[in-house]
């Protein structure tokens, strides 16, 4: 234990890291079974938020301040990824509908 000199903080950080690991596991179950691609995008968005939280907890646990910069940069990239996936899903739906309309005509 390098950074967290206090016993309370060490305990809390360990419990939090375990909780976050369980949370990522549950979200991955939804990512695998999610019936619609939109469900998977929601799960991926939550996974990125959870990883950002994990980095913040890890920064307290190890005492490395630079994990905070990693968390900020990861949040930025994850937001861009979520936006791109959501736009992709919407365009896919519009394409499918156009094809169906053409077949009906």
């Amino acid at each position: 234990m390098i950074g967290a000199e206090s016993h309370i903080i060490t305990m809390a950080a360990e419990i939090t890291l375990v909780l976050l690991t369980l949370a990522v596991f549950f979200t991955f179950i939804r990512l695998v079974i999610g019936p619609d691609p939109a469900d998977r995008i929601v799960a991926l968005d939550l996974v990125s938020i959870l990883i950002v939280s994990y980095l913040a907890a890890l920064s307290i646990y190890t005492g490395q301040k630079s994990f905070l910069d990693v968390a900020i940069a990861y949040a930025l990239i994850a937001f861009l990824g979520t936006v791109a996936l959501a736009r992709f899903r919407e365009r896919l739906a519009a394409q499918n509908r156009d094809e169906n309309n053409r077949e009906e005509e």
Partner: peptide
């Protein structure tokens, strides 16, 4: 930190 972890867990 604990409440943040619990809220993340509830979200999942």
């Amino acid at each position: 930190m604990l409440s943040g972890g619990i809220f993340c867990f509830i979200a999942s």
